[in-house]
Nucleic acid binder design. Structure first.
Lengths: 300, 300
DNA sequence: TTAATGTCTTTTATCGTGAAAAAACAGTTT
DNA sequence: AAACTGTTTTTTCACGATAAAAGACATTAA
């Protein structure tokens, strides 16, 4: 088995959902654009839909014959990218097992354990290395630097530097910029979430990311924008393992976001700075308290 | 041919240079540490040195029999890493040919042109992507973002943010820190270079990098330290293609460095800030003037 | 008994290969 | 002619295989 057809399967599933809404499908190029795949994949999808009696397909005519049944869908786990699979496995090991700083990472072992080729693992590790958690020894193994207090502090130091600058840039954006509408929309979502926080508190992390990415984009600096990938990755996994007081924490954060949004809308740089600082401080605090005390530690 | 033995060849050449200085070689582990390779490679080296009559080797005794001859050395080009070869080829194309922003990069074509496997090219591109000059389209080609004015501005914006902070951290380091000795040594090298600038101006770029890396290291932040790789890479190639007024530019820069060093040694934060700003401003200017005017440009 | 050498095993680096997916080309339909 | 469908070519992605290099183990010398 050399390459999984997850692109096809995922697009197929998404296409099934389209069937509910319409009586006939659009042209092949249009469908491709809609699903974000090539025509080749679109045609594979249509072929199967015809075979399973979901549609009648003759050239331009693609008529929906019946509603999709639950078992028309490919299983969720078959739609994941190899990269996603590797990342999940790797992070699980990193967070669960005794991932001591200084530990060495073995490509071959990792590949065998996950059941994939070494090339994919290598490529993953190279991509992952930009997060600053691992480091390569030339012609030899990778070294785990560990998710330590030091890491969290270094990460948040940069985050604060970048976000303060981005927030200031944001507030200075002209009134007719499209971001203000985006901000209004995000504000509404925040208010809604705040009012239903008791039941929907776990939806905060996704909103959080969208909000901060919007702000960072105002910097118009690719390095700042890209750096948010590091933060997002860390917080993504952080949310998964640190469930203590999740509701309370998120409730506070939503409040801080709303104050932050208010400050941005006031376009008063002093207020923006203060609101941003306040929120970042509590975000850092949350992250830090979730990290166990300093392990034996490693040499610099 | 699946893997070149450049590690062996490079270590062999370096080992030849050791023969000049001594009458007998140290133990295998010691040699390995000295050359930065494993014992396996050390033994290959020793084996060949015995075969070519350079040494007599019997267990612990490794006596030098004759001085190495120029053609005992492996050719320079055989000692390069594949990654270096690919990077050079890639950068040559990028700087020489019409590398318009938006252009797409073809892994297969690149691999064929350089004469290497696709895997190596892929890995190179993934590593290279952190420089912000290329971007991947999922399941498809890479896109060249171009070495534009915008890129240079974004890069220098971060550089200035990071270096100002690092410089302040540097100045705040305790008197007994080892960095002050490093700084003194660099100062001496600068003074020497300044006095012989007419003939040695092209040695500045290497000194420049060592100086700025020393400062960045004071931040004790891996993201700041790592970011210097981006700057170093850009300046490395920049020095190669922009030879206009090289002597003058470098002379000015050496002067700025000396003022900067003076400021650091004074430990007066105001002076440090001023000297750092001044130097970074002229560095940015140099970089910017070397970039041709805005090409047609791309959408954000 | 410590530190080296000799030998064997494991891992990394790189290629060629083949299926999945994209992209290009050619022919049709409206 | 513009936009679509049918077909072919090219490229990306991922694997297994193999030489180079590292590392582990066993043995021997000091």
């Amino acid at each position: 088995m050399s390459k999984s057809n997850n692109v096809y399967k995922d697009a197929y599933n998404r296409c099934l959902r389209l069937l509910d809404e319409t009586r006939s499908l659009p042209s092949e190029p249009e469908l491709g654009a809609l699903l974000g795949v090539s025509r080749t994949t679109v045609r594979s999808i249509l072929t199967r839909m015809e075979e399973t009696g979901l549609i009648a397909w003759n050239k331009r005519a693609k008529t929906v014959l019946r509603d999709p049944h639950p078992d028309d869908f490919f299983p969720e786990e078959e739609t994941d990218t190899l990269a996603e699979i590797i990342e999940r496995s790797f992070m699980r090991r990193l967070l669960a097992g005794g991932a001591e700083a200084g530990m060495q990472i073995n490509e071959l072992e990792l590949a065998r354990e996950i059941g994939v080729g070494t090339t994919s693992v290598r490529e993953f590790l190279i991509r992952f290395s930009r997060f600053g958690l691992i480091e390569k020894r030339r012609n030899s193994h990778w070294v785990l630097k560990g998710f330590t207090r030091a890491f969290a502090l270094e990460l948040t130091e940069i985050r604060e530097m970048f976000e303060l600058r981005s927030a200031a840039a944001f507030a200075a954006l002209p009134q007719d910029s499209a971001v203000w509408a985006d901000l209004d929309r995000l504000e509404a979502e925040h208010r809604l979430l705040a009012s239903e926080i008791a039941t929907r508190f776990n939806e905060f992390s996704e909103l959080d990311e969208r909000f901060h990415r919007l702000i960072h984009r105002a910097s118009r600096n690719r390095f700042i924008v890209d750096f948010y990938d590091v933060i997002a990755m860390i917080f993504h996994y952080h949310y998964q393992w640190n469930k203590a007081q999740e509701r309370e924490r998120n409730e506070v954060a939503v409040g801080e976001h709303l104050a932050y949004i208010e400050a941005l809308k006031s376009r008063d740089l002093g207020k923006v700075d203060a609101a941003c600082r306040k929120h970042l401080k509590s975000a850092r605090q949350t992250l830090l308290t979730s990290i166990p005390e300093n392990r034996p530690s490693q040499k610099p």
